[in-house]
């Protein structure tokens, strides 16, 4: 079997898990293996059904008191235990922060190789020598790797493919797996959560208004905030902006910041350095506002306005107000 470890947050499936199921479905078909899923710390029917919609035939569930909330060690040990019992041919998870972390825990516990952020996997006939194309540098560079492993542990590159349900969904079988977990694993379980702001977040916002060095100052982000609020979106920024201390790092879009996936990313005054592009490229559409028609962001955008963002952004806000009125 090919086993996909599903990432969820207290019962809500993560997009990365859907991507992993989609990715795994193709790989399983290629290898002639059944696609199964592992659900840790939950056995909700809805989650099981959703896994089925993405092609999982069997959903193995592990429930335990130390799995009541996320904890990398407990989840890692639970997944490792399921793998020990189920003997999958390969294991896959989403390339999210948690997905990679769980798989690393599994890899440590089983002393197996792990390859993160894969784009293509070729089993080469299944003799245990795999050829893999994976992301380096957040995706600005690709690595062809050779992997020798009886049981590869893989994650799929985040947002490198669109999650798609299967054409022929089956009603999956849910099957509980008994896992015996040391209570001390609770030492890394989430103790508390602090919500700083309700509503949309940078990674889930349908609209992101990005500002770069060209914005010029912390105060000059106000018109961007106004437009973002009007569209139910969020303000993001480039690394130059956080390095200047104009915005908190949590607003940074990029390789070392947030990977955004909005319906439209309006990048204003952002030249589009490679590290920023890595975080922005999963946007469904991009509109660039820049005085430089040759800026990387402009060249890569679907639409562009070649003018001063300090004039264009307020004009957009005014136009929306006018049409709404």
């Amino acid at each position: 079997m090919l086993l996909v470890v599903l990432e969820h947050d207290r019962g809500a499936m993560d997009e990365a898990a859907r991507e992993a199921l989609t990715f795994g479905r193709g790989l399983a078909a290629q290898m002639g293996l059944p696609l199964h899923a592992a659900l840790i710390g939950a056995n909700d029917a809805e989650l099981v059904a959703e896994a089925g919609a993405f092609g999982a035939e069997t959903v193995y569930t592990a429930v335990h008191e130390v799995l009541s909330d996320f904890g990398p060690e407990a989840w890692g040990e639970a997944a490792a235990e399921m793998i020990r019992q189920l003997n999958p041919r390969a294991v896959l998870a989403g390339g999210s922060e948690r997905g990679n972390e769980i798989m690393a825990q599994v890899a440590a516990r089983l002393d197996l190789p792990m390859v993160a952020n894969c784009l293509e996997i070729d089993p080469n006939g299944g003799a245990g020598e795999w050829t893999i194309t994976r992301q380096q540098w957040g995706g600005s560079l690709l690595e062809d790797a050779s992997l020798v492993s009886e049981r590869p542990l893989l994650t799929s590159g985040l947002h490198t493919l669109a999650a798609e349900q299967t054409d022929a969904p089956a009603v999956p079988v849910a099957q509980a797996v008994e896992v015996d977990l040391d209570p001390s694993l609770a030492r890394t379980v989430v103790k508390d959560r602090v919500v700083l702001e309700a509503g949309v977040t940078l990674s889930t916002a349908p609209v992101v208004i990005g500002g770069g060095r060209g914005v010029g100052s912390p105060e000059a982000f106000a018109p961007l905030e106004e437009l973002a609020a009007m569209l139910g979106g969020r303000v993001g920024c480039s690394r130059a902006v956080t390095n200047n201390g104009w915005r908190p790092h949590s607003d940074q879009v990029g390789q070392t910041g947030t990977r955004i996936t909005p319906e439209i990313y309006i990048a204003s005054g952002i030249s589009g350095a490679i590290q920023h592009w890595v975080g922005a490229k999963a946007s469904k559409h991009i509109l660039a506002i820049n005085i430089d028609p040759e800026a990387n962001m402009v060249v890569k955008a679907d639409w562009a306005v070649i003018a001063d963002l300090h004039e264009v952004i307020p004009a957009i806000t005014q136009e929306i107000k006018r049409r709404r009125a």
Partner: peptide, 22 residues
Amino acid sequence: GQSLVRLHRPRETVTETVILGN
């Protein structure tokens, strides 16, 4: 188990940018 075969740059997708105005 993992070894590097080669590094390469991803294929760059060429986007036709529509200029909405100046």
